[in-house]
Each structure stands twice: as C-alpha cells, then as structure tokens.
Design a protein around this nucleic acid. Structure first.
Lengths: 217, 217
DNA sequence: ATATTTTTTTAGACTTGACTAAAAATAAGT
DNA sequence: ACTTATTTTTAGTCAAGTCTAAAAAAATAT
C-alpha cells in the first residue's frame, strides 16, 4: 500500500509523461509538486525500490507497468469524484479540484467501482478529461489545442487542461464552457493573443488562456 | 488545521467521554487507538498546546469547547459518509466503517453540507447512531441497552454500539436488524446469556452481543 | 504506613517526507 | 575542448508520530 505522497508523485510523473513522452526530469517533478529537487530524488529512490518506476541517476524517470496502473487508478478516482461533486452535489467545475485531490487517495476498490456505477459509468469528467474504467482503459478523443486552429476555423470546446479555480472562473465569466463552439476570428502576432467568437460575441483572449483550451474540430 | 492523527485522538476522547463522563485516562485511549501509552502522552501534550483539551499530567483529559466542536464535526462526517455508502452506493452496514474512517478526514465544509442535503438531512446513520447537524446538534433518542430489559419485556432495536464487520455480519445472519422487535424470553444466570424472540424465532445470544444492542422501549 | 503494583510520563531512538548546503554529473557556450 | 552554467544527487538536519526502556507518580494491598 502506498502513501498519499507516493501516489502524488506517481500521478505527477504520469501526467508529465503524457506531455513529454521521454523520461521525466527531477526538476520538472519538483516544480509541479512544489517541492525541492532533492526531495524528489529521495522519493524516486523509494519508488524505484518499490519497483514502480525505471530510474537511473541523472537520466530521468519513467513509470513501469505497475506504476502506470497505480497512476491510472488515482486518476480514475480523481475524475470520478469530480464528476460526483458536480453532477450530484451541485458543485461548479471550478470548486472540485482540491476536494478531489483529497478523495483520490481513499482506498477501497469497491467504493470506486460503486461510485462509477452510481454515476452511470461516465466517460469524461467536468473538465472534459477522460475517465479510465476499472481496467485503466479510457477513450482518447482526438482534440486539438486552440492554438492549432487557423483564422476562420472553428471547433467545439471539449477539454480544459488547467483545473485551477482562477482559470475556470475566468472561463465561466466569459461564457467559455465545455460544448461552446469557438471560432478563431484573428491572431495577433504581437502578443500571440486571439480574437475568438462564441455565439454572437467576439473578444480577445491571451496566449496563456489559449493554450489550455482543447477542441474537437 | 489538524492532522488525521490529531482528529482521531479527538474523536476517540469524545467517544470515551460519552461513556466515562469523568476525565479520560491515557491507557484507555492507548487501548482504543491501538497505540502505546507513551504515544498518547505525546499527543495529549500537543493537543493541550493547541488548546483543544484540558490536560494535567497524571490527571486524565477532557475536551474543551473547541475540542468538542472538532469531535462532532468528525463524527458528523463519519456518519454522513456511512449513510451515503449504504443509501446511495448499495453497501451493507457491515462494510462501511473502515471506508468512513478515511472519508471523515476530508476537509471541506461545503462538501459535508452538500452531502448532508443530498442525503436529505438524515438524523441517524445505518447503525442507528445520531448524526450531528451543521451546528453539532443531534437528537438523542432515549435508548436502553438490551441487558436492562426484564424477562417478558420487549423493545425495538434502534442502535448498535459496535460497528465491527464481524459483529454486524453476525447480527445480519441472525436476522437481528435495526427495527426488529426483540422480546426477552429468558435470562441465564450462569453465563449472562439471553434467550430472545424476534418474529417467530427464539434463540440464545451471549453477553457480548447483548451489551451492544440498544432499544426503544 | 509501607511495600507492591499499576499507570503515566520522560528520554532517547526510528521512519517518513521534507529542507539546506555542498558536491558531482551533465549540458551549454565560446 | 574547456570553461561556465544548470541539473541532479548526496549529506546532514528537522518535525511528526511512533516505539522501547526506564523513571516517576498514583493506586492498591498487606
């Protein structure tokens, strides 16, 4: 059985692998987990000893099959709880992240699976992220980042890659919600901001917003 | 903010106070929490420093107002989660204790209160224990222990004072469930066992079972 | 009332997960 | 290629929560 801390490292390594593909660096983990590189090294040794990762000094780290299984189980729990909070307890999508960070560590396979059934086996969570099933499998919908769309192109907003309260509140305030049809009206070369159109309204959004919005073409 | 460990001590002290009334002893806490007396002493010092208990060396311990408030909040969460597991996720009453022990430490007042509302503000949990409301108040139903009933007397089983899986499975197997009408047919002076009647059936139960069954006369 | 037993506390040690500071390895720049 | 900068690891420390063993206080027994 793993500690909360070990699970958090595993989860973070998994998330970073999805972006980087190659081995994940100590510093990157430290930055994401908001800890020091030396602490990360300590934990990597521990996880290597438990045979959850492949780790060679100075060479970065990769989850092995067992590590990936654990990562997917934590992600599954996180996303199911988020779905529960929004769908059943009337939370909004910007309030659930921190609570799910706690709930994802509850140990009970039966609980996870009963919750899944209670929610009717949802395929995605309130942020559009896919929910792994009991075997760790999930449907990877083909999405493109908003910054890949050309001027004049449009797509449906299906997934957000930043679950922070501030960011999600900003989106809500501007009526940018999952399911919105977004059209790129103009790209500003000076600051990489875009003018987009949702419904009748046109407005400008900055690069840091753009890169967290994913759409179905 | 308190650690899981601190909350567990507070909760246990509260539970022991309900039985003992007088100050709770170090050894008793140690026994219940399954730890050593020396560890308890350490924790009592810590809780005293945080001003949650009144503690004098060698004199036992009592929760103060703030400590009691925390205890009630943990108890509230525990019992709400147990109710959720049984009423919404189809768990049986003997499976929920350990999971609720984990869930009771999740920190989010909003979560607790939304869960309460979702469950329709239940007054008792699946074991018949009263659930404190948002202000820590609960309805104390007047119950008597089965060992207080005279031969020929009957009552309705409303609360069980032992949440262990083994004990609850035993009750279920013998059809002794919350709401059952129980009549005392005979008391055996030799071993303090009782012959009781539920429905048509009569059978014998031991003293260790009797003392955990509480009824409404 | 004194000796014995029981309870409680103290002292010192261990583990987990973090930290700082310094050393070692790797990467980058000229 | 060699120096400088960056990244990563090592070494040593710390707090929380636990433990064992020993000392101190309180309770019990004769």
């Amino acid at each position: 059985m793993l500690t909360k801390s070990e699970e958090n490292y595993i989860k973070e390594i998994y998330a970073l692998e999805q972006i980087n593909t190659e081995g994940v660096s100590t510093n990157l983990i430290a930055q994401k987990i908001e800890t020091k590189a030396s602490s990360v090294t300590d934990m990597l040794k521990k996880l290597a000893k438990k045979e959850l990762i492949n780790y060679q000094k100075y060479k970065g780290v990769k989850l092995n099959a067992e590590g990936k299984k654990i990562a997917l189980s934590v992600v599954r729990k996180h996303r199911l709880w988020e779905t529960f909070l929004v769908n059943k307890l009337n939370f909004s999508w910007d309030e659930v992240h921190d609570i799910a960070e706690q709930l994802e560590h509850i140990q009970s396979e039966k609980l996870t699976n009963q919750l899944d059934a209670f929610l009717n086996f949802p395929k995605v969570d309130p942020h559009g992220d896919p929910i792994p099933d009991v075997n760790g499998e999930f449907i990877a919908i083909k999405t493109v980042c908003l910054n890949e769309l050309e001027v004049g192109e449009k797509g449906v907003f299906v997934e957000v890659k930043n679950d922070s309260e501030k960011f999600l509140k900003f989106l809500t305030k501007n009526n940018i919600t999952i399911g919105s049809e977004i059209k790129v009206i103009d790209k500003e070369v000076f600051d990489d901001s875009y003018t987009i159109e949702i419904g009748e309204k046109q407005f400008n959004i900055s690069e840091s917003v753009i890169k967290n919005i994913y759409l179905k073409r």
